[in-house]
């Protein structure tokens, strides 16, 4: 066995058995690399999801470090580059594509071409809706989105729900009035875990939550 294959097998040796081919052949896009997206991408890389598309126009700043998967060495870097660097150190055998650009109604279909599963991990509610609408109207993709993970409420309120045929939504279903009360690593990462887990279920053929 080649050295590379041996190391790859070692990295994923504690994974659930019998599914690695599905994960290794998986193609998943992460739209937004903040508190949700950076942690989702790292989790997917750790378990060996073989092809990741990372999309974000932003650079790492100090205010990100309370919940996002970056450190002080990444300040000022594009999040796409900072995350790619980290993933290459965790699991060097993942194929990573990056786009440092802002998603619009016009470019969404083209940017996510070839990726059947997309994690919506944007910060802004209008951008979340824009991406979900643009991709669902195209019809062939499954989207795992997030809404409601701020504050210090119970972690148990964060759930995964299948809202539409092709739309899964993770979060605490908070009302819009509760927006903007601060974001803490634990609840954001609980929500990221919900999204990453739903992605793994989809990759292994399980469509229910």
């Amino acid at each position: 066995m080649m050295q590379k294959e041996k190391r790859y097998d070692e990295i994923v040796s504690r994974n659930v058995p019998g599914i690695q081919d599905k994960l290794s052949n998986g193609k998943v896009a992460v739209a937004g690399l903040g508190g949700l997206g950076s942690n989702i991408a790292v989790m997917l890389a750790r378990v060996g999801v073989g092809n990741l598309l990372l999309v974000d126009f932003d650079k790492v700043e100090p205010g990100n470090l309370n919940r996002q998967h970056y450190n002080t060495a990444h300040l000022g870097m594009y999040k796409t580059d900072a995350l790619k660097k980290q993933i290459e150190l965790i699991n060097p055998y993942i194929r990573i594509e990056t786009h440092a650009l802002k998603i619009t109604e016009e470019n969404a279909a083209e940017v996510f071409e070839g990726y059947p599963i997309i994690c919506e991990a944007f910060d802004n509610a209008e951008n979340k809706a824009l991406l979900v609408n643009a991709l669902l109207e195209e019809g062939r993709k499954k989207i795992v989105a997030a809404s409601g993970m701020n504050g210090l409420g119970s972690a148990n309120k964060i759930r995964t729900k299948r809202k539409f045929r092709n739309l899964y939504l993770c979060g605490d279903s908070a009302a819009p009035a509760e927006e903007g009360i601060g974001f803490m690593a634990p609840r954001v990462i609980v929500c990221a875990g919900h999204q990453a887990n739903m992605v793994l279920r989809l990759l292994t053929g399980e469509e229910e939550v």
């Binding site: 910060d123 802004n124 979900v132 809202k163 927006e179 903007g180």
Partner: peptide
């Protein structure tokens, strides 16, 4: 109808 209304944060 199923309506999803997003709140900000991520």
């Amino acid at each position: 109808l199923e309506i999803v209304s997003f709140v900000g944060g991520g």
